[in-house]
């Protein structure tokens, strides 16, 4: 049997992968949950998406990261060798992943936990106090949603309306958590 249904029409315009995103930080900062959440939102917008977590020995020692690719067409490799956007929630991971950023890439660094990175030629740096903003809302754990807001404000990869629609599903109708996360998202959006 031959599966010959996969020839995509080649147009003159290059079919471009939209976004290669890496999220990194300490364990407990909601790195994986933010990554999965973004992937879920992209899926609901009928985009092609892959999410790949760091696994095995790589996640020992308290650091954590994941890579998400969102695209209009089938995704070839789920690995992010070159990164379009990095959301670094702590300093060690900012140092680790910055060299893999492409020219013109966006770098979101959690200013509450990391200083301003050096050698940033050709990069867009957004040095924002995600954890402090989250703490002001009453829970440092929603720093990840603040970061998502800041990210969406600058790179319109996902629709804010859809994100808000998906929140209740993630937090299993817990209105307090839904509200808190939505607030965090809005605070992030305001950082622009």
């Amino acid at each position: 049997m031959d599966k010959k249904d996969n020839e995509q029409r080649i147009s003159g315009r290059e079919n471009k992968v939209i976004e290669r995103l890496v999220i990194s930080g300490f364990g407990g900062q909601g790195i994986m949950s933010l990554g999965k959440f973004i992937a879920l939102c992209a899926m609901r917008e009928n985009k092609f998406v892959t999410f790949i977590p760091a696994y095995g020995a790589e996640v020992r020692g308290g650091t954590s990261h994941c890579a998400i690719i969102i695209s209009d067409k089938a995704i070839a490799s789920a690995q992010c060798e070159e990164i379009d956007t990095l959301i670094a929630m702590n300093e060690p991971s900012a140092i680790k992943f910055t060299p893999r950023l492409k020219k013109g890439a966006h770098l979101f660094v959690n200013a509450s936990m990391a200083g301003k990175p050096r050698r940033l030629k050709g990069l867009h740096l957004h040095h924002i106090r995600f954890t402090d903003i989250a703490s002001r809302l009453g829970n440092a754990k929603v720093a990840n949603m603040v970061a998502l807001g800041a990210y969406i404000a600058r790179k319109k990869i996902l629709s804010v309306r859809n994100i808000i629609k998906i929140l209740p599903e993630i937090f299993k109708q817990n209105t307090l958590l839904i509200h808190l996360n939505e607030q965090a998202l809005q605070e992030g959006l305001k950082t622009k």
């Binding site: 892959t50 696994y55 995704i75 690995q79």
Partner: peptide, 10 residues
């Protein structure tokens, strides 16, 4: 392979 096992997709 490990990539397929770990990767999440719709």
């Amino acid at each position: 392979d490990g990539m397929l096992g770990q990767m999440m997709e719709p």
